[in-house]
Amino acid sequence: MEQPASHLIIKRAEGVSVVEFADRKILEELSIQEIGEELERLVESEPGIKLLLNFRNVDHLSSAALGMLITLNKKINERSGSLKLSDINRQIFEVFKITRLNRVFDIHENAEAALNVFNA
């Protein structure tokens, strides 16, 4: 049977798992559960994971996606890992501000800045 295509592009950089989303529609409701499950598997496979979610391909967001990120963040913290977000466009950052989730997540301007903090 054919495996469902991954929604994520995962790379390693300086001890950090850097995840990008494979297409722009990924954060729509229909895919969020699958993305959440894929990210949870990644977190479970590496205790103390340093995970950077790069949002440069993302131009839309929903409350369900925010919920998925909150659940993921808790799971990472429980496993002594660390999650950072980067490259969030202006409109999507506004959603984080309206919901005050910019206070919950560690958000960086770009991936390079986030990697520097991970490895400081």
């Binding site: 409350s63 909150i70 309206i98 919901t99 919950v104």
Partner: peptide, 18 residues
Amino acid sequence: DPTADENLELPNGRGIML
């Protein structure tokens, strides 16, 4: 209110406010 400090880390409840 999903933006109240005590609710900030709840995974649900943001749709209506958005």
